[in-house]
Computed example of a mutant assay.
Amino acid sequence: MKIAFRADASAEIGTGHIMRCITLADAFKGTGGQCYFICRSIPQSLQDVIKSKGHSFFQLPHGPPFIAREDDVAHASWLGVNWEVDALHTAAVISGIEPDWIVLDHYALDHRWEKQVRGPQCKLIVIDDLFDRPHIADILLDQNLGRSRENYKDLVPRDCQVLAGPEFALLRPEFEKMRAISIERRKKPKLEKLLITMGGADKDNVSGWLIDFFEEATDLGLLSVTVVLGASAAHADSVKMKASTSVIDVHVLQNVNNMAELMKDTDLCIGAAGSTSWERACLGVPSIIFSLADNQKQIAVDLDKHKIAKQAQLWDAASLLEIVKHLRKAKNLTRLGINAAKLVDGLGAQKVVEHVESYNVKAI
């Protein structure tokens, strides 16, 4: 089976779309699939990850710059070109691959692009979080809390399979492997080790602000703070310099390949309310979350509402201090971790592959 992925990454888009596609591609590869990534915008570091996993990579050519129009979808500008240009370029690559499935993970594209790119024998998986535009998908995946077919009833064909909710969260295998150990160590709760993960780009340098915050809040009793940055983090040098002169014990790691282990070993994580929310949940890690992008706002609200994570307001040091003090109480820390662990089992990618294989059998 051949599977072609269309996704991008940038400071504006973030890295989460590419990362979850890589996870799904790895799962397909594990069952004998051949995977191809087609990208317009992507850092070299992520290209290297794709290739190191044994997947093929295609870089789309430059095109005329994006011109806004009245019929654009909300995130159309993220593409860098108008959708017709991208469809033309992508279709040229697709014709050479002749995939069985296309996986589309891009907020800038909708049913118009899909009609231009998919062939008559090719099936389509759309990965979405926003339910704000129509698709002609055979399978639609939305891994967010509270999602159901109802959200997409007027946006996809009647026979489209909608895989909704965190049970389908696309996590790398190491999270499921670390799950039991991580949950077990939380039976004796404490708050000494803190992990900060603000996404692959962290374009607003929230990591730097958090280091400043914990330098001032010295009465919290933390023994160590670890900050994880993506390979393309915009303020990496500044964060590293700040950490090197900090009065608290701060370690900065960049472009790590052991995130599951780092999460397992921490007592509390502060992170963006993006796809890493499901990684933390799988491991039962108590979390404080910030909404750093439009597509994270509802995730943050829902996770806080269901007492799976505590939402903090960006740049509001007073509210963050109150939340951290609340979580210093063992019962509060424990309750958050238990609720989180119930949400995600770490087998989402495997479940999606099984649905695709089942779909293929029914189509024969």
Rank of each mutant, 00 (worst) to 15 (best):
A231W: 07
V250P: 03
T218P: 00
S182C: 05
G33C: 11
V356M: 12
G33N: 09
M19Y: 09
L229F: 05
I94L: 10
H111Q: 11
F290R: 02
L88E: 15
M1T: 11
M198F: 11
M259F: 02
W101M: 09
K329H: 14
G32V: 10
R328N: 13
T226I: 04
K193N: 13
A233D: 05
W78T: 01
F5V: 15
C39S: 13
A233W: 02
K51Y: 03
Q59P: 00
A272I: 05
T90E: 01
S358V: 02
S45L: 08
L46F: 13
I288S: 10
L222F: 14
V256H: 00
D219Y: 11
G119M: 10
S41Y: 05
Q59V: 08
K325C: 03
A318G: 11
W113L: 10
E98M: 08
K187I: 07
D204G: 05
A7D: 07
R6H: 03
H111Y: 09
I18R: 01
L24T: 00
I289P: 04
D132M: 04
M19E: 03
G80R: 12
I181F: 06
A169E: 03
C269M: 14
V81E: 13
I308S: 04
T90N: 03
W209E: 06
T218N: 15
G348S: 10
A363I: 10
V206W: 02
M241K: 15
V73A: 06
W209V: 07
H75T: 06
A74D: 01
A293M: 11
V117H: 08
A201F: 05
A92C: 00
V252P: 06
I211W: 11
I338N: 11
L333I: 11
C39Q: 08
G146P: 14
F28N: 01
C269S: 08
L191D: 03
W101Q: 03
I139F: 05
T226C: 09
K351L: 10
H62Y: 12
A68W: 02
T245F: 06
H135S: 06
V361I: 15
E114P: 13
S56I: 01
A91N: 12
A217E: 13
K240F: 00
L46I: 14
V227Y: 02
N339D: 08
R20K: 12
Q34K: 14
R6E: 06
W209N: 11
D304Y: 01
M19Q: 04
A74E: 09
N360R: 09
D128C: 04
L46G: 06
S232Y: 00
I308L: 04
E322L: 08
Y359S: 10
K351T: 02
Q313G: 04
E357R: 12
N151S: 14
K307S: 13
L223C: 02
V356D: 04
A217F: 03
D345I: 08
V361R: 14
F213T: 05
E167D: 12
F28R: 01
D249W: 12
I42A: 01
Y36W: 14
I364Q: 09
E174S: 10
E84W: 13
R112W: 02
K242I: 12
I183R: 10
E174H: 01
P286N: 02
D142E: 09
R158L: 02
D128A: 00
M19L: 12
M241Q: 15
A341E: 03
S182A: 15
D154Q: 11
Q254D: 01
